[in-house]
Amino acid sequence: MSEPLLTADAHLRRDDAARGDAPRKVVDVAVGVLIGADGRFLLTSRPEGKVYAGYWEFPGGKLEAGESVEAALARELSEELGIAVDPAHVQRWREQMVDYPHALVRLHFCRLYQWQGELQAREGQSWVWAALPVTVSPVLPGALPVLRWLGEEHVPPSA
């Protein structure tokens, strides 16, 4: 299921064609919505040196040439968090286009209920197992739709 374009900044950006610019290349990103047995979900902070450093997001990263969403997510979760994911257990969930000032991004959100290993902050990031309403901030604009979707699906943590 695809959602409409989400504009990541407060000012609506003019269409590339209206400006006479060449269309921007879409960057595909695999994003993991890791959901624990208690219903809480994993959020990670963006490390120093990256765009939006300190913002909270769902973990993941860019697809490499010829890489599937599932393989990219497994690779990124291993690189960033030291956990192993079987690409066969990756459940594609939704897609969202986000127009950030620095990039036009197609986010491929995948739900994960199974992984192996202990979380490690391999990029110096922080993480939190969260429930709705989320108490960490700021939250990356591309993560906001996921929080809404989780709320619509009524995924509260178990007591």
Rank of each mutant, 00 (worst) to 15 (best):
E48C: 08
E57F: 14
Y113S: 14
H108E: 02
Y100C: 01
E70G: 08
A103H: 09
P23F: 06
G142D: 01
R14F: 11
C110K: 01
T44K: 02
A65N: 13
V31I: 15
G61M: 08
T135A: 11
W149Y: 09
P141H: 01
G36C: 09
V146S: 02
D15K: 05
R13K: 12
A17L: 14
A131S: 12
L147S: 02
G124Q: 11
A18Y: 13
R14G: 09
R92I: 05
A143L: 08
D9S: 14
W127D: 04
H154Y: 08
D99Y: 06
A53C: 12
A53D: 13
R14M: 11
S158P: 07
E152V: 06
I35Q: 10
L6E: 03
E3K: 11
R46W: 08
Q114Y: 15
G124F: 13
R13S: 13
S137P: 13
L81G: 00
Q125P: 05
W93L: 07
D15G: 05
L112N: 01
S158Q: 13
A103E: 14
Q114H: 15
L112Q: 04
Q116R: 13
F109D: 01
K25L: 14
A65R: 15
V128T: 12
G124R: 13
D16N: 09
L144S: 07
V26L: 11
V33H: 09
R75W: 00
E79Y: 14
Q114G: 04
E79D: 14
V105T: 14
A84N: 11
V33M: 10
Y55S: 06
G60V: 02
A130W: 10
Q96Y: 09
F109Y: 15
P87N: 02
D28I: 09
R46D: 00
W115S: 01
A8C: 11
L150I: 12
P23Q: 09
Q91I: 12
S126P: 00
Q120L: 13
R111S: 07
D86A: 10
R148A: 03
H89K: 08
Y100R: 07
L112E: 02
W115F: 13
P156E: 02
L119K: 04
